[in-house]
C-alpha cells in the first residue's frame, strides 16, 4: 500500500488461525476503541479484549482480541461492528420517537 493512504485496518500480531490477534485501526480513537471493546466483551466467545492508543501523536488504536475454542477473532470483530451499528440505530430510533412525542418542556433561551 502507498504511504499516502494507510490501510484502515491492519493485523499486527496474531496466531495463524486468527484466534488471537491485535488489530491496528487507523484514524480512530477512544470513541471507537472503547465502544468496540465493550461490544466485543459482550461476546461470550471472547476470552480477552482490550484496546490502547499507543502514542498520542500516532493517529491509531490497537485492539487486541483473544478467542475461546480457536474461533476467528476477525469474525468476532465483524459481528461486534454489526451489533454496534444496530445499537446506534436503536438509540436513534428511540430518540426520534421521543422527539416526535413532544413530551418535553420547551423554553426560550436568549442568545
Amino acid at each position: 500500500m502507498s504511504s499516502e493512504t494507510p490501510d484502515k485496518l491492519k493485523i499486527l500480531k496474531s496466531s495463524p488461525d486468527l484466534s488471537a490477534a491485535t488489530y491496528q485501526i487507523h484514524d480512530e480513537s477512544h470513541t471507537i476503541g472503547n465502544s468496540l471493546r465493550w461490544m466485543l466483551m459482550k461476546n461470550p466467545k471472547v476470552e480477552f479484549c482490550g484496546y490502547s492508543v499507543p502514542h498520542p501523536s500516532e493517529n491509531v488504536i490497537n485492539v487486541r482480541i483473544q478467542m475461546y475454542d480457536n474461533l476467528s477473532s476477525l469474525d468476532a470483530l465483524i459481528t461486534a461492528l454489526d451489533d454496534l451499528d444496530k445499537l446506534c440505530e436503536t438509540v436513534e430510533d428511540q430518540y426520534l420517537e421521543s422527539l416526535r412525542a413532544q413530551e418535553y418542556e420547551t423554553w426560550d433561551e436568549k442568545s
Partner: peptide
Amino acid sequence: VMREKLAVIKKSAEALR
C-alpha cells in the same frame, strides 16, 4: 457519523477476511 465510521472499518475487516 458513528455508523459511517463503523461501516468503513467493517468494509476493511471484510476485505481482510
